[in-house]
């Protein structure tokens, strides 16, 4: 069977290295598998939110009569209704909406950076990576404001179970509702925010390498694609956080 031996020699062993199984480079494939594991982590967090929420009573009355109480799960519209510079104005979900659009747009500029990278267009990579960085940093700034507002609370505060008035929130008590609500807010948006932060750092490293010509010398801009995958994933997670934490 000499013919068979020749065939084996000609085609490289698919899993023995020097080849790209599934037609994706090692780095891209591993980024995908890492993201899959991250999918499980975020799913676990969001599903835990669902479970804890289902184990608390829901507010039964009309939405206009809603007040913060430890007795039932708060309505997110009523908790996240503040916008910077508009103190005391009830603008439900407006600020979160702005944050959502910022993240989607920075995801778009990232796609454009990846597209420019595939064309070896260094100037366009630099331009779009810079826009992406700007979007990411703006999002982080918005989140910092939102956390600060959540932690410091509203003017009126809310009544705790012992009857005292408490302003804002920490991990064990909060004015908005059952303690678990604030704890989950901190964990879920915090974990996502940290992903955004790492994404900004990774994007900056790749932006820097593109600027100093390192990627050019390497002969490929594929690193832009790899960090791009991570950055889109961060946007994807926010789509789910937005729905299951803020809308539902």
């Amino acid at each position: 069977m000499a013919g068979t031996a020749v065939v084996v020699d000609d085609s490289k062993n698919l899993w023995g290295g020097g080849n790209e199984p599934m037609n994706a480079s090692y780095g891209k494939l591993m980024m995908w598998f890492f993201l899959l594991s991250d999918v499980f982590t975020f799913s676990a967090l969001l599903i835990a939110y669902g479970m804890v929420r289902f184990s608390h009573p829901a507010f039964e009355g009309a939405i206009e009569e809603f007040v913060f109480s430890q007795e039932y799960w708060p309505i997110p519209d009523k908790v996240f209704n503040a916008v910077p510079f508009l103190h005391g104005v009830d603008l439900p979900l407006v600020f979160v909406g702005i944050m959502t659009f910022i993240l989607i747009l920075s995801s778009v500029t990232m796609v454009l950076a990846v597209e420019a990278g595939q064309r070896n267009d260094r100037a366009a990579v630099e331009k779009w990576m810079l826009w992406t960085l700007l979007g990411g940093i703006t999002f982080l700034g918005c989140q910092a404001w939102e956390w600060s507002h959540f932690i410091h609370g509203t003017d009126a505060g809310g009544k705790l179970l012992d009857g005292s008035i408490f302003y804002g929130a920490n991990l064990s008590q909060n004015q908005y509702g059952p303690p678990n609500f604030a704890a989950l807010f901190f964990f879920i948006t915090g974990f996502h925010g940290f992903h955004v932060f790492s994404g900004v750092v990774l994007n900056f490293i790749i932006f820097f390498q593109a600027t100093v010509g390192k990627l050019e010398r390497r002969g490929t801009y594929e690193m832009v694609e790899k960090v791009g995958l991570y950055w889109h994933f961060v946007d994807l997670v926010w789509v789910f956080v937005f729905t299951f934490f803020y809308l539902v």
């Binding site: 479970m51 804890v52 289902f54 184990s55």
Partner: peptide, 16 residues
């Protein structure tokens, strides 16, 4: 994830 979702939502209802 679908399995976890169904399992924990049923669990949450049971805790309630």
């Amino acid at each position: 994830i679908v399995w976890l979702l169904i399992a924990l939502l049923i669990q949450g209802e049971a805790v309630f």
